[in-house]
C-alpha cells in the first residue's frame, strides 16, 4: 500500500466519522441526502462481496466492515431514528436515484472484466460510486445554509477520491501490471463531480463565510 492509497482511505474514514459525529452530536441529518447514503450502502455491499470468500489483510477486512456497517447505520438513523428522521430534508432530496442504479447496472452488464456475478457486481459498484454523490450535491445546492460539518463531510469524500486517483497514477508508474481502465474512467468522472464543490468550498474557507452553492 502506498501513501496515497492510505491517505485516501483515511480521508474516506474521516468523512464517515464527520457524518456520524454530525448526526450524533446535533441529532440532526439536515442537509444530508438519504438517497446518496442508500447508494453508498449499495456500493459497499456489492463491492465487498469478497469478504465472504477471500482474506486479503486485517486492514482491508476491518475497513470494509466499517464502511458497510456505518453506511447501513446512517441509512437506519435517517429512516427510523425517532428524533433524527424528523430532521431529514425529504422535500428537497428528490433526486431520482433509481435512475443511477439502473444506469450503473446496464453499464456493468455491458462493460466488465468477466461475466461472473462478482465481476459484474464489482463493476456496478465502481460505476455507482462514481455518481452516488449527485443527490448529495443537488441537496447541498438547494440548502441555503450548509452547516460546517456537512460541508466538511463532502470535502473529505472528495479528498478521498482525489487521493485514489493519485494512488492509481503512482501504481501505474511503479508496478508492472497495468491498471484497469474501469476504475480509471469512473474515478475521474467522480472526482470531476467534486471540482465545482471544491471551488466553492475554497471560496467559503478563504472568505470565512458559510458555504453556499450557487443555484
Amino acid at each position: 500500500m502506498n501513501v496515497f492509497r492510505f491517505a485516501g482511505d483515511m480521508t474516506h474514514l474521516f468523512s464517515v466519522l464527520v457524518l456520524l459525529l454530525k448526526i450524533y452530536a446535533t441529532k440532526s441529518c439536515s442537509g444530508i441526502s438519504l438517497k446518496t447514503q442508500e447508494l453508498y450502502a449499495l456500493v459497499f455491499l456489492t463491492r465487498y462481496l469478497d469478504l465472504l470468500t477471500d482474506f486479503i489483510s486485517l486492514y482491508n477486512t476491518v475497513m470494509k466492515l466499517v464502511f458497510i456497517s456505518s453506511s447501513l447505520a446512517i441509512v437506519w438513523c435517517m429512516r427510523a431514528h425517532p428524533v433524527v428522521r424528523r430532521t431529514y430534508d425529504k422535500d428537497q432530496d428528490t433526486f431520482r436515484h433509481y435512475t443511477l442504479v439502473a444506469g450503473s447496472l446496464v453499464l456493468a452488464l455491458l462493460f466488465h472484466d468477466r461475466f461472473t456475478i462478482r465481476e459484474v457486481c464489482w463493476a456496478f459498484s465502481i460505476y455507482l460510486e462514481a455518481v452516488a454523490i449527485l443527490p448529495q450535491l443537488v441537496l447541498l445546492q438547494r440548502s441555503r445554509n450548509v452547516d460546517n460539518l456537512t460541508g466538511q463531510y463532502v470535502f473529505f469524500l472528495g479528498a478521498y477520491r482525489a487521493f485514489y486517483i493519485l494512488n492509481w497514477i503512482y501504481r501505474y508508474f511503479t508496478e508492472q501490471h497495468f491498471s484497469r481502465w474501469i476504475p480509471w474512467i469512473a474515478g475521474l468522472v467522480q472526482t470531476g463531480l467534486y471540482a465545482d464543490f471544491f471551488y466553492y468550498y475554497y471560496l467559503s474557507w478563504k472568505n470565512n463565510v458559510k458555504l453556499q452553492l450557487p443555484a
Binding site: R5, D50, I56, F67, Y164, R171, T174, H177
Partner: peptide, 10 residues
Amino acid sequence: TSSESIKDEL
C-alpha cells in the same frame, strides 16, 4: 502490500 490488485482496494 504491492501484490494487491486494484480490485482489493477499498
